[in-house]
Write a protein that binds this DNA or RNA. Sequence first.
DNA 1: ATAATAGGTAAGCATTTGCTTACGCAAATT
DNA 2: AATTTGCGTAAGCAAATGCTTACCTATTAT
Lengths: 104, 104
Amino acid sequence: MRRDVFQAIADPTRRDIINLIAYKPLNLNSIADNFEVSRPAISQHIKILMECGLIEMKKQGRERYCEAKLEQLNEVSEWIERYRKLWADKFDRMDDILDELKAK
Amino acid sequence: MRRDVFQAIADPTRRDIINLIAYKPLNLNSIADNFEVSRPAISQHIKILMECGLIEMKKQGRERYCEAKLEQLNEVSEWIERYRKLWADKFDRMDDILDELKAK
DNA sequence: ATAATAGGTAAGCATTTGCTTACGCAAATT
DNA sequence: AATTTGCGTAAGCAAATGCTTACCTATTAT
């Protein structure tokens, strides 16, 4: 029952779920429509995503809207960023980030 | 046998292994000395890390030196960065990165 | 040559994971 | 009031995971 973000995003279906609701919350059945596996399977994935805070649910009548809490990815991001300065292409990527910033 | 980086870093022991050799390659037994589990267990973890390119091995006599190939983390990093602009704290983190750059 | 060291790998096992079908209940529709 | 819809969850199952012990080969030391 170690439900951490690293493990949550290890499953490709769960990553797809996150991707699906990143911009717009969806209710559970709408999410399940996008996958080949059964609704209960999706329900279980969403439970896992909730347990590590990557998703929050808002009840709305009989529907449950799932909203992505992407800031939870920060834990993973920070772990990786610790090593970024050791990569060869460090400055190229920094340039990308700078360009992005300037574009704003 | 889907050996992708996401799954590789889902295991805390494997993350610790990466952390251990991030700056300095170590041979397998030296790595295993840092963990409570057996040497074969570590050997199996390292096999997984190799299969997704996160580690490369250099034979040196009877020793095998394990070197972290951190650029493989890029796949995870890129996946997360796609969502960073959706976080609330985006610009705070950008400031951090800028400060880091300036310090160089 | 013999022994010690480094490490790969198989077999066995308990636990976890991911899925299914079946069922249950609350909210909405008719 | 009866039915349909949305969704949680239990039970069951196959496969994957993580570990152990046992054994093996190759290199180094004595």
